[in-house]
């Protein structure tokens, strides 16, 4: 489920490429939002992310993609993948696609205003209930999950080094 929360915000690009339909994406978003079981093989739809996470799991000696693997990829290695993919494909917004750590400023129905390194922006809260001052991960226009203070700082520092 966490993998899909991180991966689905990107999937608009897959719709644009014709890999999946908007209807299929909307169905998956509803499933993830509701917490219902993910359909079999749905995790392979974001093929690149799934492959990258699978390899990280293998390298860590793990039999499955767990939270640590997902964080390793989406929080610490995703930016490099974006740059690589944008260089070759060039058909998506590489700035919007980065995962970012932010601080929740305010919460409304189904959205939150979050301060990231890009400034204040509204993000959908379909995947995650948040409160003011929470540290969160954003991806495209979604809040993906809350992070504890320690992890939030770790990710911020890692991204500062890269950027």
């Amino acid at each position: 489920m966490l993998f899909m929360k991180y991966a689905l915000p990107c999937a608009g690009t897959l719709v644009k490429r014709g890999n999946i339909t908007q209807e299929k994406l909307d169905d998956l978003l509803d499933i993830v939002k509701s917490g219902k079981p993910i359909p079999k093989d749905a995790e392979k739809i974001p093929a690149v992310a799934f492959a990258a996470c699978s390899l990280i799991a293998i390298d860590k000696g793990k039999k499955e993609i767990d939270e640590a693997v997902i964080h390793d990829y989406f929080l610490f290695n995703h930016d490099d993948m974006i740059d690589s993919r944008y260089e070759k494909m060039g058909d998506f917004d590489p700035v919007a696609c980065r995962t970012r750590v932010g601080s929740v400023l305010s919460v409304e129905l189904e959205k939150a205003r979050v301060l990231t390194d890009l400034g204040e922006r509204d993000f959908r809260t379909d995947f995650c209930d948040v409160d003011e001052n929470d540290n969160v991960v954003t991806h495209w226009n979604f809040v993906v999950e809350k992070l504890d203070k320690e992890m939030a700082e770790k990710v911020r520092k890692a991204k500062e080094v890269v950027e």
């Binding site: 093929a47 690149v48 492959a51 690589s84 993919r85």
Partner: peptide, 8 residues
Amino acid sequence: CTSGMAVE
């Protein structure tokens, strides 16, 4: 292939 991985 993409980004150093054979995917399918």
